[in-house]
Simulated assay, not measured.
Amino acid sequence: MSNEDDVIRVRLPDRKKGELFGVVTSMLGAGHIKVRCEDGIERLARIPGKMRKKIWIREGDIVIVVPWSFQKDRADIIWRYTNPQVEWLERKGYLKF
């Protein structure tokens, strides 16, 4: 079975809910990180409690963020992609930053 035949299920951002791709630029501690979003804004994002212990996020990871409606320079992280998922996104042309 070749690499192209492998089935990879990848969650994409729901644009109706305001979700965006982002790249983790720096870790700030206490569940907060800096994320450069695909719209060009660098946001202070927080890792929700349900993700904090289960999913480890490092600098350079691709994530999905939801900007806050009342404070545009803040966001919540809702998803982190694994390396095979990132490769698939790049191959399909979803990542453009």
Rank of each mutant, 00 (worst) to 15 (best):
M1Q: 04
M1L: 11
M1S: 12
N3L: 15
D5W: 00
D6A: 13
D6N: 11
V7N: 02
V10Q: 05
R11I: 14
R11P: 04
R11G: 00
R11W: 04
L12H: 00
L12A: 04
L12V: 04
P13L: 01
P13Y: 00
P13N: 04
K16N: 11
K16V: 05
K17I: 01
G18M: 08
G18Y: 02
G18I: 05
E19C: 01
F21Q: 03
F21S: 01
G22F: 00
G22Y: 00
V23A: 03
V23R: 12
V24K: 01
T25I: 14
G29C: 09
G29Q: 02
G29Y: 03
K34W: 04
V35H: 04
C37E: 05
C37P: 14
C37K: 07
D39K: 06
G40L: 05
G40S: 07
E42L: 03
E42R: 05
R43D: 11
L44F: 08
L44G: 05
A45W: 11
A45I: 09
R46M: 12
P48C: 10
G49W: 02
K50D: 03
M51L: 15
K53T: 13
K54C: 11
W56Y: 15
W56M: 15
I57M: 14
I57S: 08
E59C: 14
G60T: 01
I62Q: 11
V63C: 04
P67W: 00
S69Q: 14
S69G: 12
F70Q: 14
F70R: 12
F70M: 12
Q71W: 14
K72D: 14
K72A: 14
D73G: 08
R74F: 13
R74D: 01
D76P: 01
D76A: 15
I78Y: 13
I78V: 15
R80H: 01
Y81P: 08
Y81N: 10
Y81I: 03
T82I: 12
T82C: 03
P84K: 07
Q85P: 12
Q85L: 02
V86W: 06
V86Y: 07
E87T: 14
W88Y: 11
W88I: 05
R91G: 13
R91K: 14
R91M: 04
Y94F: 14
L95V: 09
F97S: 09
